[in-house]
Design a protein around this nucleic acid. Sequence first.
DNA 1: TATTAGCACTCTCATGTGAGGAGTGCTAAT
DNA 2: ATTAGCACTCCTCACATGAGAGTGCTAATA
Lengths: 345, 345
Amino acid sequence: MMGEILDERSEKVLLAVIKSYIENPDPVGSRYVTKKYDFHYSPATIRNIMADLEDLGFLSQPHTSAGRVPTDKAYRYYVENIIDEKKDYNELLETLYNKIRSGAEDMDTLLDETSRTLSSISKYLGLAVSPGPEGSVLRKIEFVPYKDDRIAVVILTDEGVIRHKIIKNELALNPSELSRISNYLNKEYKGYTIKQIREHLAEELRRDKAMYDNMINRSLSLCREALYTYGSQIFITGLSQMLDLPEFSDIERIKRISKTIENKRAIITLIDRIMDSEGVQVIIGTENPVSDMKELSVIVSTYKEKGRPSGVIGIIGPKRMDYSTVISLVDSASRILTKLFEEGG
Amino acid sequence: MMGEILDERSEKVLLAVIKSYIENPDPVGSRYVTKKYDFHYSPATIRNIMADLEDLGFLSQPHTSAGRVPTDKAYRYYVENIIDEKKDYNELLETLYNKIRSGAEDMDTLLDETSRTLSSISKYLGLAVSPGPEGSVLRKIEFVPYKDDRIAVVILTDEGVIRHKIIKNELALNPSELSRISNYLNKEYKGYTIKQIREHLAEELRRDKAMYDNMINRSLSLCREALYTYGSQIFITGLSQMLDLPEFSDIERIKRISKTIENKRAIITLIDRIMDSEGVQVIIGTENPVSDMKELSVIVSTYKEKGRPSGVIGIIGPKRMDYSTVISLVDSASRILTKLFEEGG
DNA sequence: TATTAGCACTCTCATGTGAGGAGTGCTAAT
DNA sequence: ATTAGCACTCCTCACATGAGAGTGCTAATA
């Protein structure tokens, strides 16, 4: 991202604050930093440095006369510049491996297990999304007005499969608008694979970002969702475990989190961004486009099937997160999954 | 259950307390009862009646000088003796009906939708369990010690299907014990359908209830679980919605609930009892064998597939629940589902 | 010039107190 | 059998108070 670089001493202090805060979510004071990480500077000096870091946007104070807390920017800096240690998750690898080897588990079960494994190792939420209908070719798509505020999306593919999906008509599109969208899609995209269409739609959406509430743009969103949801399942596990973390002692926050989990639409939105890039992605707090998730961090990676990225696994947790561990974990898991699918699991 | 009958006046007071408490979870005082439900008695008289009801175990006081709160026994009495009104859920019926009619939804999606529907109508948790492998015939079953504290259960059926399932070895059975159990099951049950075996195991378990921590008994539990979990999926939805209820403003309670939801084992235990009987079942608070669910009520019903009960749908919510509505709702839903399957959905 | 000691200041949080209110149980009157 | 009256209990909430932690600033120090 932005290539801001701190001098060594500031970085050290920043690191100390982050580490301390990750260990224990209390605002970190200057005295504490000097003692715990024995700097050969006095608290006063540290205070000055911390004040500078605050000016730069790396730290913030919950209130005057409290210690400092890392900002999203701090975590980002941490992830980009400081993390290096790679943990070894061979054990995880083996467990998963055995699981698929030893029986005829279907993919859903496998992904569910993956999600549970990720969650139980990390103590955060495990996430796994099954592959969408990537490869199939669109023959016809139709949006049919349905009961109340819902739309039935009917998709015909070249495999002769008819699939349908009921989605909420949150944009309140009327029948003629719907049929206009159907026509547009059929004209434009017939004969392309779902994947190609999705990518193209994403492209168009990006280009027209400015006109956010433009009708066309919003209906493209709709299509994208229709194409994605169709066929892919989302597994999120480990809520009760995560609630034990001290930052979730706030009821309202818990409600928001559980809403997020149930809101598949939000997850889809997120996944869509992920699919474009390779490797482990880290999305910290407000970097997340989904408003419900701005107090969480998401670490995800795609896994490949038949050589192309097809689904996503990852972890959702608090921003105050042991990033180095979790990144290694997600990375290992996605590699293993890819490997399993290569061997024709 | 117990055929205790209250005189009309007491019953009326009890009903008033329950109704008031269901509407609003504050302890109900004598004055409030007289006013709101205009009895032609004074608060003092009501107080006497309430004191009697407390002696009988129908009401309880959070503390001296608070109003009264219904006990589980009160809800039970309410459900058995007072409820009569049947609400009409034709609308629900229609929605569900259209859903399965209009497309090639698989059963999992349908059950997921059912669960969501139940939850969104009731504002509580929706529950749906897919059919187990009722009809298939056991050819061979094997328990294999697995990593750490886990056991792999491998089941071969006459359809030539191999299925396996990893379960936790919570009873800490050692390999020789496991193989003893395998042998027992193979000898005893080879050639029977899974359903028959499950029923028989349930029978044995009931008979030996006294010896609860008897090894044999506990391993039978294990088998039963292995046979159930295999193939059936559990859908529970609507947590975030339910958290809006005032009784869930307690963090610890929320944690317990979310643990319950994730604990499929507990649900299975519960389902097993349900499968034996027909019609809507109401399990109130401490009546629930699952300890995690003693502060909740469960309203469930089986649905039939090919004429025999195969899966379960229902609602999980607080004890303070609008039982009459919810019972009608679950009843309708299960009938509809049964009908759908009859028509070969 | 960079660092540090000292100090006044701010804000939170835990604790205690006391008024107000709701509801009870009991007794005596109806 | 019912009810009015009343003393009593217990909870809740608002408010004050003090301790504690941490800051920013200034002036002294190396």
